[in-house]
């Protein structure tokens, strides 16, 4: 249902009323923004000196270093989780019962436990001196389990005739999986996979809790060590780092939407999944519906 079905096309009276609502709504919103700006300015958080910290080379370097660590964790975890996802998805679809039981158990366990707790346990138990690997392996286990379910749904969505035809040509099970099923599954699920990568990127910020020096940790560190006029510049730092995160995630989301739109143009192959709806995953160890 498009939203315009929910209301009549406005006549003169309704137009006037809508205009009043529009003005009132905008005024309320602007008022709220003005209040926030006023309060922040009154406490001196918008002073030039507070924002001047971003002109120092040291601050810029630590932002760049934090950004690199975040992207490093994201890149390694992204690749490893996709590898794990393929293994788990194939294992879960295996004809050998014990293999598929083990894969199901691993997938269900790591989707049910909060990612933060997995990462924390990995950190305390195994990687005390190397928090990068605690973050990476935690992210890999959780996102691998989620991506495995995405891939499995994609493989099951490939029409049965495809694998039957492949078997009829004399292909082995491995050949059918690697040359017929997985390529089509990946193609149709690509938007969902990229959306889940956005979640992976967001979740690298959990490294903050276990003192991995990623972007958020760098910001916190910076804000608590720098003093401007006897105050810590928490507000400017949080705003700037927030903008960096939102920009990175929006770029990846845009990629997912672009792939979806591009896939929809193609007339061959199975239907391409929707980027947003297919992954109701909120990150932080959230599990999607299956």
């Amino acid at each position: 249902m498009s939203s315009s079905v929910l209301f009549d096309s406005p006549g003169p009276k309704a137009r006037a009323r809508n205009r009043i609502y529009a003005v009132a709504g905008s005024a309320a919103l602007l008022g709220l923004i003005a209040f926030i700006v006023y309060r922040l300015a009154a406490k001196g958080h918008l002073d030039g000196a507070m924002w001047d910290i971003f002109n120092y080379a040291g601050v810029r370097n630590s932002i760049a270093k934090g950004l690199v660590s975040t992207l490093e964790a994201f890149a390694i975890a992204g690749v490893l989780s996709l590898v794990l996802a393929v293994l788990l998805a194939v294992a879960r679809l295996s004809d050998h019962r014990p293999v598929s039981w083990v894969a199901t158990g691993v997938i269900e366990l790591f989707r049910a436990v909060p990612l933060l707790i997995t990462i924390y346990v990995l950190w305390v138990g195994f990687f005390t001196s190397d928090p990068l690997w605690a973050v990476v392996i935690g992210l890999t286990l959780y996102n691998g389990a989620v991506q495995a379910e995405v891939l499995r749904a994609g493989i099951l969505a490939v029409p049965k005739g495809q694998s039957e035809a492949a078997y009829a040509l004399g292909m082995s099970k491995t050949q059918v999986m690697t040359t017929v099923l997985i390529p089509q599954a990946v193609r149709s699920m690509l938007p969902t996979i990229v959306s889940q990568l956005v979640v992976t990127l967001k979740d690298t910020s959990l490294g903050f809790v276990i003192t991995y020096e990623e972007l958020l940790y760098a910001g916190r560190q910076m804000a608590s060590t720098i003093l401007v006029d006897g105050e810590n510049p928490y507000v400017p730092v949080v705003l700037v780092f927030g903008a960096i995160y939102v920009a990175m995630c929006l770029a990846l989301s845009a990629l997912a939407n672009w792939i979806e739109k591009r896939g929809r143009r193609a007339k061959t192959g199975i239907k391409v999944a929707e980027a947003q709806k297919a992954a109701p995953d909120m990150g932080g160890g959230a599990g999607p519906a299956t």
Binding site: R39, L40, K202, S205, G242, Y245, L250
Partner: peptide
């Protein structure tokens, strides 16, 4: 758009460091 693309940890930082300044 804004809330979906923000890490939750960052929102916690906003809540704990910016919100008390505003209110």
């Amino acid at each position: 758009t804004l809330l979906r693309n923000t890490p939750l940890t960052l929102l916690f930082l906003v809540a704990f460091f910016v919100l008390p300044q505003v209110l």
